[in-house]
Amino acid sequence: MAIFIDLLLNALVIGVLLGGFYAALSIGLSITFGLLDVVNIAHPTMLVLGAFIAFLLNSTWGIDPVLAGIISTPFFFVLGWLIYQVYYNVFEKSGAESLRGLAFFFGLLFIIEVGLIIQFGVDHRLVEAPYIGQSWNIVIGEEIDVAIPFRLLVAFVVAAIATLAIHAYLTKTFFGRAVRAVAQDMMALRLMGVDPIRVKRIAFAMGVATAGIGGALMIIVLPIEPSLGRLYLGNVFAIVVLGGLGSISGTLLAAVIIGIAESIVATFFGPSWAPAVSFGILLAVLAFRPEGLFGKTAGAH
């Protein structure tokens, strides 16, 4: 029994931490896709780009990966700004079907991926930081102790701060409310004298900017290689849809749910079933409640 409680406690703790990490990967997509309706399928690959930048800064100058992520965030903001500029002029302005926008980001995904391969090769990369490989052991009782790996804890704390900050920004500030309004009623914004395109551009750039810090967390948690983004493609979209489009707090909750589901399944049923469980949840939600677990607007539009 003690062993069972020990495993369960650890699975829950790891699940919550993992959820925070997943939230950091998904939050940018929650903005670009959830709020702005731009299907940025290249987002996970942008995260990998962020991870490689953190690797570069870490291996060349020994900069802490979290700091490296903060340093690269403005770069991603500019990148997002430019991408939206192209996206708007070519697709959105002409009201082009979403399929073409999707294909555009698909192409972008591969361009970034191959660019990384050409620059860094296909080897797996890691970063060095004093907290990686260390853990914090909390003894709770006889045969029950919880081990918290620092790399997950760092990822969780940074992710939580970033997510809450974005959530606060979008709900409390005028600009944030404008972003949320853009998703619902562009016309009303125009009447209020706000340029909706400018709002969308900045919001999209913000979403992409999260790839800087998110990518840094990625390489702290696991080894990276250029095509890693593809593996996480399903995960991040699952989380955003599960949380309900447009809901930042929903994304955080959904990420924690997926994290806990994965670590419980990995502990008690076998790790290889974990993706089937999380995507099973997604598929069930899509089939029976397309608006997501926490969404308010109907998903089938």
Binding site: I3, D6, N10, P149, L152, L231, T267, F268, G270, P271
Partner: peptide, 21 residues
């Protein structure tokens, strides 16, 4: 004896489950 999936982000639950045996 267990398999894992290539996108497993964290392996501590697996090792814990193995250690428990």
């Amino acid at each position: 004896e267990q398999n894992y999936n290539p996108k497993t982000a964290d392996f501590t639950p697996i090792l814990r489950a193995a250690n428990a045996k």
